[in-house]
Computed example of a mutant assay.
Amino acid sequence: MSSKQDDLKETNTEARFEFKKEEKSAFKSEKGLTEETVRVISEDKDEPEWMLERRLRALEQFQEMPMPTDWPGQPDLSEVDVDEIVPYIRPDVDVRAGVDDWTELPDDIKDTFDKLGIPEAEKNALSGVGAQYESEVVYQNMQERWEEKGVIFCNMDEAVQEHEELVREHFMTKCVPPSDNKFAALHGAIWSGGSFVYIPENTTVDMPVQAYFRMNSEGMGQFEHTLIIAEEGAEVHYIEGCSAPKYSKFNLHCGGVEVFVDEDAHVQYSTVQNWSKNTYNLNTKRAIAENGGRMEWISGSMGSKATMLYPSTILKGRGASD
C-alpha cells in the first residue's frame, strides 16, 4: 500500500472514531471516588438497597488494595489517578423511559451513532442493539421474535429493576467478585450501564446482538457491566464495540464482563475496540462454563494509551472448553 493510501486510511479512521461533540449532560458527578459519590450514583439510579451495599463493599476493597505492579506485560499506570476522573455522566436523554427508535435521540447523540454506522448494522445484520453514551445506555432494541422466545436483552440498570433475582444471584458474586483485583473493585463501586443478556434453555439466537460504548467527554471514566446468562443448550453471539475521541487529559475505561455458560451452551463474545491514545483500558472479563459448555473470546483491541485485558474461562464442568 502506498504512503498516500496509508494517509487516507488513517484520515478515514480518525473521521469515523475521533470526532467530538459538545458535552451536554443531565447530571454529572464530582471528580474522584468517595462514599458520597457512590451513594449519589446509586440514588440517581434509584437502586435497591442491596446494590448500594455491594457498591460500598467494593469501595472498601478498592481503598484497601494496592495498585498492581506485577501483572503479565503490565504497562506503566503511574498516570492513572482516580481522583482526577469524573466517574458518572448521565447524558441529556430520558434513559428511564427507554428509547427504541434512533430518531427519538437528541441530534448530537444520534449523529454520533450514525457516524459509527450502528443503526445501519442493526438493520442489516443484528438481532438487537444497545448503545451507551457516557455512563448510560441511551438506546436498546431487540427483534420481537427473540423476545417472544424469552430472550432478554436490556441494559444493566433496567435489569437491576426488572430482573432483580437473576442479577442479584450473578452480579459480581461468583465470576468476577470485587476482591479479584483493584480494578474489579473500582468497577464494582461505580459501574454504570452495560448489557444484560439472558438466553433460555435450548434457544439459539442465530444473529448477533451488539452493544456499543462511546465515551465523548474529556477526563471521564466509563464503567459498563455486561452480564450474560446462557441456559442449558442455549447459543448466542455477543459483539462489543467501543471508541472515544482523543483529548489531552487521560480517560479511563474499566468495564466488567461476566458470562455464565450452562451445560452444552455456547457463547461467543467478540470485542472490537478503537480507543484514543489518551484512554487507559483496564477490564476484567471472565466466564464460567459448566459440563459441555463452550466459551469463545475474540478480541480486537486497537488504540488506547495502555490496555490490560485478560479474558479467561473457568472450565468448571466436565467437557467444558474455550
Rank of each mutant, 00 (worst) to 15 (best):
M1C: 12
K4P: 00
D6Y: 13
N12W: 13
T13F: 14
F17S: 00
P48Y: 05
M51A: 10
L52M: 07
F62P: 01
S78K: 09
D81L: 15
D83F: 00
V86H: 04
Y88I: 10
D94I: 04
P106C: 08
D108G: 10
L116D: 02
P119W: 00
A125M: 14
Q132L: 10
K149Q: 12
V151M: 04
I152M: 11
N155H: 12
A159D: 03
V160P: 07
Q161C: 11
H163S: 04
V167W: 02
M172S: 08
K174S: 15
C175M: 09
C175R: 06
P178W: 07
P178M: 03
K182L: 06
F183W: 13
W191S: 08
S192E: 04
G194R: 00
F196Q: 02
T204I: 14
Y212P: 06
R214F: 08
N216Q: 07
G219W: 02
Q222F: 09
T226M: 07
E232C: 03
G233P: 05
V236I: 15
Y238V: 14
Y238G: 01
Y247F: 14
N251I: 05
L252E: 03
V259Q: 00
V259G: 00
A265V: 02
N274T: 11
K285G: 01
A289K: 04
G293P: 01
R294M: 12
E296S: 10
I298C: 13
A306H: 08
A306Y: 06
Y310D: 14
S312L: 12
K316I: 03
S321D: 13
D322P: 00
